[in-house]
Structure formats: C-alpha cells, structure tokens
Design a protein around this nucleic acid. Structure first.
Lengths: 288, 288
DNA sequence: CAACGAGATTGAAAGCAATCGGAACCTGTG
DNA sequence: CACAGGTTCCGATTGCTTTCAATCTCGTTG
C-alpha cells in the first residue's frame, strides 16, 4: 500500500482473491499468500479472520481450508462451538432435572441440543415426551426407547435449524408441558429471556404459555444482555441453569424472587449414576 | 497420499481425512494412519482424541471405529441403500418437473430425499416452497437460497424420520400445493399408492388433498405390490416417475388413463440446461 | 487551501498457543 | 506376565494474537 511498483490492491480485493484461491485449491497457506500479495503474514491472518466470519473459509494452523458443509450446517456448528464446555455442563445439569414420565419442551438452541444429548445418553426412559422446535434435537432424540418426540408445524429457519411461524400453533395449543427448557440470546432481570428474532420469540412464547414450569438455560455470556424480542418475563421462570461465571449479584436477586439457580460446575463427573435426585448438587449455593 | 513427497498438511485437514476414512471403512488403525500421513503414532492418537470429543469416531485399542449410529439412522440408511441407483435417477427426473415459483410437497421417502438433493444441486431458485414431512429432507434443503421449507406439526416417527399425526393438520389445511411428489411402499392400478402404516398414510392423504397434481415416485420394486394403507387412488395421479424395469403393461394402462409416465433411464445426463420443458425427455415413450 | 481528526490499513515486536515427536512410563489384552 | 498399544511430559518449532505506532484516506473546519 505504501509505495513501490505494485499496483494498488485494496484489502477487500485481496480477500476476494484469497477466497477464490481457497475455492479453487481447497486450501491455502499463510506464508504462500503473504509472498504472493507481498504483504506481511499478520495482514494475511487478518484477511483470513474476516473471511472466516463471513463463512467463506475455515481457518487452520498455518492457513485455511474450504468450508465443506452446507451453509446451514456451518452456521449451526459455529454457534455450537461457542462456550461448548459451558453448554455441555449446563446441558448435563438440566437433564438431571427431568424425571421419567414427564412432558418437556426444548427450544432450538445449541444448549438445549447439549441437554438432549444427555437425555439420550442417560437412557432408561419409560415414557418421556419431548416437544421441540429444533430439527437437530428432533433428529437426535428420535428412535430412542421410551422417548416420544413432537414438532410444531411451521417454516424452517435455517440459521437455527428451527421451526417457526404462526402455523405452528396447532400442536402447542393442544398439549400440556410440565417443564420448558429454553435457551436465549439475552437474559436480564428487567426484560427476562429474549431472542434475536421475533418469529423465534413468537414460537417460544407459545411454548412458555403451554408449560407449567420454565427453566432457562443460559451461559454467563447471556447474562445482562438484551436481544431483540422478549419471550419470557423473569417472574415466569421456575429455575435458571447457568455456569460458574455468571454474575453473583444477579443470581442472588433471582433467588430472592424464589427462582432456583443451578450452577453447573466443571467438577462434578457423574455420568452414569446421576439419578434425577442427586444431580442438582450445586444448586442453591453459589460461593462468594 | 501415502508417503514420500508429502506436502504440508494442516492438522485439521488430516483429521478430516481420518474422519472420512472412518466413515467409509468403519474402522482405522493407528499404525496405518501414521504411515499414510507420515506422522508419528502419537500425533495420530492426538487426532483421534480430538475426533472422539467431537463424536465423529469412537476410539479403541489400536485404532478407532465409526460411532454406532442410533437406531433411527441405521434404519434409514438401510432403506436408503435399496435401489439407490434407481432412486437417484427417479429423483433427478422428478426434480426436472419442478419450476421456479412453485409450491411443492415431498413426503418422507428416501426417493423424495434423492429428489431433494437434485433440487438443491440445481440451484438458481428465486422462490421455491417445499412442504415436507421428512426431517431429513427439511434439514437437507434448509438454508439454500430461494428455497423455503415448511413442516407440518406432529409426532416424529423414527423409522422414517417423518412427522405424522393428527396434530399436523393445521399447516396442510392452510396451504396450496401445486405438485405433490410422493413415494410409496406399494403401487397398483386398483389400490393406487399405499404405505405400510396408517399414520403415515393419514398425513399423506392430507398432502394429496391439498395438492393440484400428484406425482408418484415409485421404482419398479413397488409396482404390483399393495401395502397396508392406501393414501392416493390411481385416478388422482397426474404423473408417475419410475425406472426402466417397470412393467410395460401397467405403464401403458396408466397412459390410457391419461397419466404421464416418466421413465428415468440411466443414460440422460442433462444437469445444467434441463429446463422444465425439455427434461421429460423419456416421458411418454417407453421402449419394448 | 492548509490543518485537523476520525477511521482504516498495515506490520514490527513481544508473548502466547498449537503442533509434533521422542522418551519414560502406564495399561489393556491375550 | 509379555508386549503392543496408550498416556503423559517435555522441548523445539512454528504459527498465532495482541499491542502499538506509522501511514494513508477522507471529510470537516478555520
């Protein structure tokens, strides 16, 4: 950019070339690109980071690869990777709150997916009914002994692999749900649980309305944030499952409102014998 | 691939190859992989550990195995393999019958899944609406430019990864469908299209009722067989897409009833320029 | 028109993290 | 118990992130 004989090459322009190169060859290396465009490797890495957030390449140590899967799968997997460890723990703790014979609802969040995997692993169900608007969750749980899966009807939102829309009402108005386990994009005391899109929020409101109890599944990054559309006020919540880094002040405020706060710590390792009674080990007491 | 002139391969890339290898062969051995990628066995074991945490392989002494798929996935895959080549061709021919701007319905059959894959590949859609009760199809088509996917509500039948049940009515009573593409377990002139379970047939009847035209997707093994529940009488059919081995007599009888019979031969290869008019190349004339 | 500041782009440098394989040591399997 | 196979720890190397400052563009202001 500074001087010399090179022609002007805008950053954006260079990124396009990199993207094309990845498309063509399937893989590129940082060192090669730096040489080819006569810029530093730092700059190339910045370009790759931009392209990665756009979903056009997948970064790897030393370079980048062409994204293999379809757009929907990619978008979903990116979200799934974020705070994976926390979601895993939250999912395990939430799964422990479910008793055989219940009817529960799960939304289409990645945290609920983690929970579904734990329900699946636990096994031994005689009659568990799961209502979900998440295609991934439905696929995951289908065919497991003792688990019945129901989906509301509607349009498929590929960003979340979820079913939304006014058409979905039919099922949700007819069923009774004991506990709804809901992820969210934001969670504050004042606004409750909120999500990024109105259509997703609409369907979640229906789920909430059909449920006796509502359990929020929110890792610490969701606390204190507000997303576009609220679908569940704080007072409607029965319990909140979160991780250790959630702000203590807000957690205490929730307890004062008689909302149980389950903190899923990374320590508890009871994969097999965690019956539904013993597993909420860290509930109700949070250090500091 | 094997050795010698090995180019720099990113760790992530190598892991992808290992995962593919496991998927394909069902099992891999550490020593083989170490030789193939010209890295130490320690490194391969680290790769396998990563892939295991991602759930893509299951480690074992000496190597790794493909993760045992769920009952639902196994059942589905078995059906998918049967007459795969025929289903592939039928799917391609059927996809050629779809025009941009239409609303179509697909059932949860594996033949419809093959068709969906062709719709996806074809691309260039501006506004195609697909109503399906197949979870696999919905997942496959979601997120593709110009394609809107809708699902009826209901319970998930794991055997077919389909949505069934009386609750699903809501959506299907409100929408208009131009063409319904329906697989079947049996097809005769007298009984029409039939399926093995009543609940699946119930939902298909709703789809048929909501559609202007009905196109049957039936490979030759379905002809002349009758399954438990009929969901569409022969006279309701607009067209039938099948393969070359379908009985000529029955095909002619269909044509006499003014039902178009498309025979998907293995020869035609018109992936790009097959507009909706030209694509029924083998329709209406069946040799021998 | 010069001066100024906000914003974008770039890369040098320093510190951090991932990758890899060797070696010592542990473990599952026959 | 023998031993192939696995784990853990370590250091070397390479690549990555962050910080910070230099440079350039562009719009605004005096």
């Amino acid at each position: 950019m500074e001087s010399g004989d090179r022609q002007e090459v805008f950053a954006r322009e260079r990124q396009q070339h990199i993207a094309l190169s990845v498309e063509e060859h399937g893989r590129v290396r940082v060192t090669d690109l730096a040489e080819r465009f006569a810029v530093s490797e730092v700059t190339i890495r910045k370009d790759l980071r931009v392209l990665e957030t756009e979903g056009r390449v997948v970064r790897a140590h030393g370079g980048a690869l062409a994204p293999s899967r379809s757009r929907a799968e990619r978008a979903f997997e990116v979200r799934e990777r974020l705070q994976r460890a926390e979601k895993e723990r939250i999912g395990a703790a939430a799964a422990a709150l479910v008793a055989d014979g219940e009817s529960i609802a799960l939304d289409a969040s990645t945290t609920a997916l983690a929970m579904a995997r734990h329900l699946k692993t636990r096994g031994g169900w005689v009659h568990l009914t799961v209502i979900t608007n998440g295609l991934r969750i439905a696929s995951e749980l289908a065919g497991h002994r003792g688990i019945t899966v129901a989906l509301p009807g509607g349009f498929v939102r590929w960003e979340a692999m979820s079913v939304v829309g006014p058409l979905g009402g039919g099922l949700l108005e007819k069923v009774n749900i004991q506990k709804a386990f809901m992820g969210a994009a934001g969670f504050t005391l004042e606004t409750g649980l909120s999500d990024a899109t109105e259509e997703e929020a609409q369907l979640k409101r229906l789920i909430v309305a059909a449920s006796s109890e509502v359990v929020a599944l929110v890792d610490h990054t969701k606390w204190g944030r507000t997303a576009f559309a609220t679908f569940c006020p704080t007072d409607r919540l029965t319990a909140v499952v979160t991780d250790e880094e959630a702000p203590a002040g807000m957690a205490n405020a929730l307890r004062q409102r008689r909302i149980t706060v389950h903190v899923a710590s990374g320590l508890e390792k009871t994969p097999s014998q965690s019956s539904r009674r013993s597993a909420d080990s860290t509930a109700l007491d949070m250090p500091s």
